[in-house]
Simulated scan of single mutants.
Amino acid sequence: MKSCLVVDDSSVIRKVARRILEDMSFAITEAEDGEQALRACLDHMPDAILLDWNMPVMDGIEFLGKLRKLDGGNAPKVVFCTTENDVGHIAKAIRAGANEYIMKPFDREIVEAKFQEVGLI
């Protein structure tokens, strides 16, 4: 079973993402911010990361930069999931190492399409 780390400071978003991803046969781990997510990746590097941009403690861009420097940190497929929708933000996320980008609010169809595009399903 593939694993996915869902990183978002909103418990509602984490719950919605968990339901969608579990239905897609992913084992889910959750983190409320980038710092917790980094610790989770050090414990077990996931196959995929659904990542929020704006979070307390450590935001998504900072987390992604640190993740990609870890041993094995290039392996997870990272899908940003955020309300930041301008071209500049999307370009910054891709330059930082994101594989794909999803806008909030999202649904199962969008998540499945993006995960399929990056080869996770």
Rank of each mutant, 00 (worst) to 15 (best):
I121V: 14
A75G: 10
A93W: 00
I121M: 12
D71F: 07
E35W: 04
E112K: 11
P56S: 09
L67E: 12
F80G: 01
E32K: 15
L120T: 15
Q116C: 06
V118I: 15
H89P: 00
K66V: 11
A31W: 07
L5I: 09
D71K: 13
F80K: 02
V7F: 02
V111L: 15
D23F: 05
H89A: 07
D71C: 07
E117D: 12
G97Q: 03
V79T: 08
W53L: 08
M103V: 12
R18L: 03
L67I: 15
I28T: 06
H44L: 12
P76Q: 09
R68V: 13
R39S: 13
E100Y: 09
N99D: 12
I90A: 03
C81E: 04
N54H: 11
P56M: 10
A98C: 05
A17E: 04
R19E: 03
D52L: 05
I13C: 07
L5K: 04
A17P: 03
A93E: 00
A31Q: 08
P56H: 09
E32V: 14
C81L: 15
I110T: 15
I61F: 06
D86T: 09
D8R: 08
M45E: 12
G119R: 06
E112V: 14
N74V: 00
R19A: 08
S3K: 14
F106I: 14
P76I: 12
K66M: 11
F80R: 01
R18E: 10
P46M: 10
D52K: 03
A98K: 01
S25K: 11
F63Q: 08
E22F: 00
Q116W: 00
Y101W: 12
K66Q: 15
E100Q: 12
V7K: 01
A93D: 01
K69G: 09
D9S: 07
